[in-house]
């Protein structure tokens, strides 16, 4: 399984993501810089977390208009799996590859803590290593994780199983509507989540519940880019 990690100025979780992908897939990901206009044949594209372009205008807004995101959108259109974590999730929403938007936390505070997540849909290619309804631990670290979409969109997303992850047991750290922590697109190959599973993959991290996302998508993807 060959993965690719998108690099943008201001990201800061790229090394963590590269380490996690290398550890779990046994193969180092290729990296793709923001000015590149094509992504070589890979089985998974990951947009890691951080603060691309300093969160100017809106978090993820400038990154979403960078050349590499046109290549990501084109690959996603061909069915290549795309995973966005934290800022990566914000960027995927800003590009329109995922529905909704991520707004300032209702507390107005940056949150850095461990939360509980419920796997609401374990039938996606990003969550299939978990059991339906399984509650896992995972760290979050963000200022803008407050997911929002209008009521009609939320009803449609829930009806189609696109709300794959929710904050569980009262641990919603950001005010996200209906406790939404992670969303998959209608085609099922683009997934974004605010928590950081790449920082929860071995006992030294305090737990390894985050491995399942990578094991799911790295074990099941067979679409050539």
């Amino acid at each position: 399984m060959q993965s690719a990690v998108v690099l943008l100025p201001g990201l800061n979780r790229d090394r963590d993501m590269i380490a996690a992908l290398t550890k779990i897939s046994g193969r180092a990901p290729v990296t793709v810089w923001q000015t590149e206009t094509a992504i070589s044949a890979v089985d998974l594209i990951v947009i890691p977390g951080g603060f691309s372009f300093g969160d100017y205008l809106r978090c993820g807004a400038i990154a979403a208009r960078s050349p590499v995101m046109r290549a990501v959108a084109e690959a996603a259109g061909r069915g290549v799996p795309v995973l966005g974590v934290c800022n990566g999730f914000q960027i995927l929403c800003e590009t329109g590859l995922l529905p909704g938007a991520l707004m300032r936390n209702t507390s107005l505070r940056f949150v850095c803590r461990r939360v509980k997540l419920e796997v609401v849909n374990a039938a996606t290619r990003f969550t299939s290593a978990y059991r339906q309804g399984q509650v896992i631990g995972c760290p979050v670290a963000h200022h803008d994780g407050n997911y929002f979409a209008d009521e009609d969109t939320l009803t449609r997303l829930e009806g189609e199983g696109q709300v794959a992850l929710r904050y569980a047991e009262g641990t919603n750290p950001n005010g996200a509507v209906r406790d939404i922590a992670g969303v998959v697109n209608a085609a099922g190959n683009v997934f974004g989540l605010m928590p950081h599973p790449e920082n929860f993959i071995e006992p030294e991290h305090g737990g390894s519940d985050g491995r399942g996302f990578f094991e799911s998508v790295l074990g099941t993807t067979r679409v050539a880019a």
Partner: peptide, 9 residues
């Protein structure tokens, strides 16, 4: 439409 506003919100 394309940059200055996010018309979702």
């Amino acid at each position: 439409d394309r940059l200055l506003a996010n018309t979702v919100i």
